[in-house]
């Protein structure tokens, strides 16, 4: 038995890689917990959506992003920024609306951007970024790059008109090899208080893409290894073909929808408890122990380190300056600004 397991693992998985990604997932979890605390302390304004429960999805896919690839997502974007390499200090400062933030404190939690690392945002309008992602994929091919676009969207976003218009175009352009986009539907079972059973008469999200001529598959979004496998295979196929593809990652939003959500009203304690058993971080810990890749002590060390990093990030954010009022007029348009900034 034990032997069998070993061989199965060595073929597909590099334990060191899993440990590295575990580190990232734990860091994101810490970041989210700290940001929720800071929100309650009134240090973060606007709104806040945390990624708790979904970490394996972003970790598995983003770790396979190539230099030339692009990433775009909605407002649940902290994990994406951090996993692409943003400094937790700058990310936290952005949530705090500080000058030292990733986008100078002007975007906040929902609008993290990191163009140098290929993160094309952070968007607050549900579904609104989907056409942008498809356009980015087209632009990549049009300009002769062999990059692809990882386009993250929620189950709720799939019900919006913007999604439909974009999926149709992705199907059409993909036929000509001009749309290397991977739709990553993070099906976390809810759109705010609306469960997938109530938001569509057919909750087979992967299946919906068939009618756009887009191939698709489902992946267990709680299993880092499953996500890694799917990403590794699909991204290279799409890079090669230039055809759109869709992956439905089945996952769960363990946290509330946002900073002001009373989820007892629309989901039962039992349901949440059941999904907690599949917490991707918990599952991965068990896996790493089974593989002898780590021991309990090592796991604790990783968590402590993440905690320290995030504490430092919060301190940095807290102590940073607010952007000065004049900054309201800068960065509104790209390049030199003819109209604004003269006041």
């Amino acid at each position: 038995m034990a032997d069998e397991k070993q061989t199965e693992v060595s073929a597909a998985v590099d334990p060191e890689r899993l440990v590295r990604l575990y580190r990232e997932m734990v860091l994101v979890r810490e970041f989210e917990e700290a940001s929720q605390r800071s929100f309650r302390q009134g240090k973060i304004g606007g709104y806040l959506h945390v990624y708790t429960g979904q970490e394996a999805v972003a970790a598995g896919f983003l770790s396979q992003k190539k230099e030339e690839d692009k990433v775009i997502t909605a407002y649940r974007d902290h994990a994406h920024a951090l996993m692409l390499g943003a400094d937790p200090k700058e990310a936290m400062a952005e949530l705090f609306g500080k000058r030292t933030g990733m986008v100078k404190g002007k975007g906040g939690s929902m609008h993290l951007f990191d163009v140098d690392r290929g993160l094309m945002g952070g968007y607050g309008i549900v579904g609104g970024h989907v056409p942008l992602g498809v356009g980015i994929a087209y632009a990549l091919r049009y300009r002769g790059s062999d990059g692809i676009c990882q386009l993250y969207l929620g189950d709720g976003a799939v019900q919006t008109g913007a999604f439909h218009e974009a999926a149709n175009l992705a199907g059409l352009w993909g036929r000509d090899g001009m749309c290397p986009v991977v739709f990553i539907v993070e099906n976390n079972q809810y759109a705010m208080g609306t469960s997938v059973e109530r938001s569509t008469a057919n909750p087979d999200f992967a299946g919906k893409f068939e009618a756009y001529g887009i191939e698709s598959e489902k992946v267990d979004g709680m299993s880092l290894e499953a996500v890694l496998e799917a990403g590794g295979r699909v991204f290279e196929e799409v890079r090669e073909s230039g055809k759109a593809y869709a992956i439905e990652a089945i996952t769960y939003r363990i946290a509330p929808h946002g900073a002001a959500d009373f989820f007892e009203k629309y989901r039962t304690k039992e349901e949440v408890r059941e999904w907690r058993q599949k917490d991707p971080i918990g599952l991965l810990e068990q896996r790493l122990l089974d593989l002898d890749a780590v021991d309990e002590e090592k796991l604790q060390e990783i968590k402590d380190e993440a905690k320290r990093t995030i504490e430092e990030a919060v301190r940095f954010a807290d102590e940073s300056e607010e952007p000065p009022p004049e900054e309201l007029y800068t960065d509104v348009y790209a390049g030199e600004d003819e109209y604004l900034g003269k006041e």
Binding site: L172, G174, T200, A201, N202, G207, E210, A211, Y212, I214
Partner: peptide, 17 residues
């Protein structure tokens, strides 16, 4: 053929009817 990806009639399935 430049307007519709896939087939219109097939789209109904995604909406459950």
């Amino acid at each position: 053929n430049l307007q519709v990806a896939g087939r219109i009639v097939d789209r109904a399935a995604g909406y459950g009817f």
